[in-house]
Design a protein around this nucleic acid. Structure first.
Lengths: 112, 112
DNA sequence: CTGCGTTATTCATAAATATGAATAACGATA
DNA sequence: TATCGTTATTCATATTTATGAATAACGCAG
């Protein structure tokens, strides 16, 4: 019998004041917003309902020291969603931490 | 205004063949079983329904190279649940990995 | 062979989440 | 002022998950 593949897996997120602030899904949402310029399109593109994405974004913006995304309604194109400088910074920080996490996990898997 | 407390949090688990094998909750269950000698008592002591604990244990035993817990029905006391040597080994391994994870998380929190 | 408390199993219901529909509000542009 | 596609919000309904009730099976001890 072949030996079964056994690995360590995990999830990471950032909390502010003990509340969920940023996880993998929210980071993906922020990146899609940056690319598409629209919350609705970003949500749909990652198979997420608009409502869920909207509430997630509200939660993020409320918790963050400054808004991660600026939402505008009306106007040219009906409205838009713009990733702020603060948003870009948090995306970068999260991805750095995430990279370190992958290394951590593969290393831990070797001891099993 | 005081600066908000911002930290990196995470969860760890072990997968076998891509399926969930051991996480924090299951480890706690195994430890309670070792202490109490009963699956039912272990489940209740951690606010878990017996069924959920039972199915979790079935899943663990099925995935593991050898059963983590031996279940016996009938007999003195009505039955019992005994943590096996394999079970003890996995508990130890998980706790070691978990300790390393705590250190990882606190270190990553410093870059925020 | 009866009693005991556990393991083993099913089922209906409760609770929590997710999803989609529907619609108002908005503001630049033509 | 009408149009457009987005943001903003509510609501009913599916879907999933969790919970508790109920009961059979088991095997040692008395």
């Amino acid at each position: 019998m072949a030996k079964k593949k056994i690995v360590v897996e995990g999830r990471l997120w950032i909390e502010i004041e003990g509340r969920n602030f940023l996880g993998a899904g929210r980071i993906e949402l922020l990146e899609k917003i940056e690319n598409l310029g629209s919350l609705r399109k970003a949500a749909i593109s990652m198979g997420l309902s608009y409502q869920k994405a909207y509430y997630a974004l509200r939660s993020m913006n409320d918790l963050a020291p400054a808004p991660l995304v600026e939402l505008r309604q009306g106007g040219k194109g009906g409205g838009c969603a713009i990733l702020t400088e603060t948003g870009r910074e948090f995306v970068l920080k999260y991805k750095k931490i995430s990279q370190a996490f992958v290394i951590f996990l593969t290393k831990q898997s070797t001891v099993l």
